[in-house]
């Protein structure tokens, strides 16, 4: 690992260590936060008791569905919007302010329409994720060099072939950013919905534990979410770096 990598690791481990010491020594009261090591133990116990699997399956399943819908629809919508410059100019201010509107306020509306199923939650996660994908698809398509599109015309490729074989790979670094954000936003949408009104899922269980002063379960679940999201992101980050290294000659 590089020097930068070691420093980074030291900082992360140092922060966790500091938190551990502060909690153990009582500077941070146990009512506020339990030590990180304790969180891990509680998470392990929760997993062993079999109480972790159902909410995790539920939440991750919904996130996965919302994420896949976001990426697929986001890319297709991005392609279409990019092909309509006038529409896009009008749409831009709306896209730019999209994330300031907390879409999960519509959760109750969706429940009335679709009933108390997973669908409203998936839709909220999708609504959160899809715009990040659209914005980054547009960004990527804006930066496809015109000369590459001319190569496409030279080879008499159809619009579909050009999209799949030139635009998609050329915009890939930006699409990747969109994919990473779609993961993050799908999680936010799904978990926020579970917090607000739902009878299951990790978000619900955290809120339930909080209301019952069950700090051990609460922090174990929080640890689970944070480590899962971070691990997922790191995996995507490493994959992305490998791709970029190849394309930018290891700069």
């Amino acid at each position: 690992m590089s020097k930068v990598g070691w420093i980074r690791l030291a900082i992360v481990l140092g922060s966790v260590g500091l938190l551990e010491i502060l909690c153990q020594s009582g500077v941070i009261r146990p009512l506020t936060m339990i030590p990180p090591s304790r969180m891990a133990v509680e998470l392990w116990k929760l997993g062993a008791s079999g109480k972790l699997a159902p909410p995790v399956t539920k939440t991750l399943g919904n996130v996965a569905a919302a994420f896949i819908l976001s990426v697929v629809f986001g890319f297709i919508a991005g392609l279409l919007i990019h092909a309509l410059p006038r529409f896009r100019r009008a749409l831009d201010p709306l896209l730019a302010s999209y994330y300031a509107v907390p879409f999960f306020v519509f959760y109750p509306v969706l429940i009335v329409i679709f009933g108390m199923s997973d669908l409203p939650i998936i839709i909220i996660g999708f609504l959160f994720g899809v715009v990040a994908m659209i914005i980054n698809t547009l960004n990527g398509l804006d930066r496809v060099p015109t000369v590459l599109l001319k190569v496409g015309r030279m080879n008499r490729m159809s619009a579909l072939q050009t999209a799949a074989l030139i635009k998609l790979p050329s915009a890939a670094p930006y699409l990747f950013t969109g994919v990473k954000l779609a993961v993050a936003y799908s999680f936010i949408g799904v978990i926020a919905s579970e917090f607000i009104l739902s009878g299951s899922g990790i978000g619900y269980d955290i809120a339930y534990a909080y209301n019952n002063f069950d700090n051990r379960t609460m922090y174990a679940l929080m640890l689970f979410i944070l480590t899962t999201v971070t691990a997922l992101n790191m995996a995507l980050y490493i994959w992305e770096q490998r791709m970029l290294k190849r394309r930018q000659g290891g700069r």
């Binding site: 060099p145 000369v147 590459l148 001319k150 190569v151 030279m154 008499r156 030139i166 790979p169 050329s170 890939a172 190849r246 394309r247 930018q248």
Partner: peptide, 15 residues
Amino acid sequence: DGVGVVFQEDASFPW
């Protein structure tokens, strides 16, 4: 068909 073009800009596909 039968016409080839080489451009001034780098038109190689980086991927």
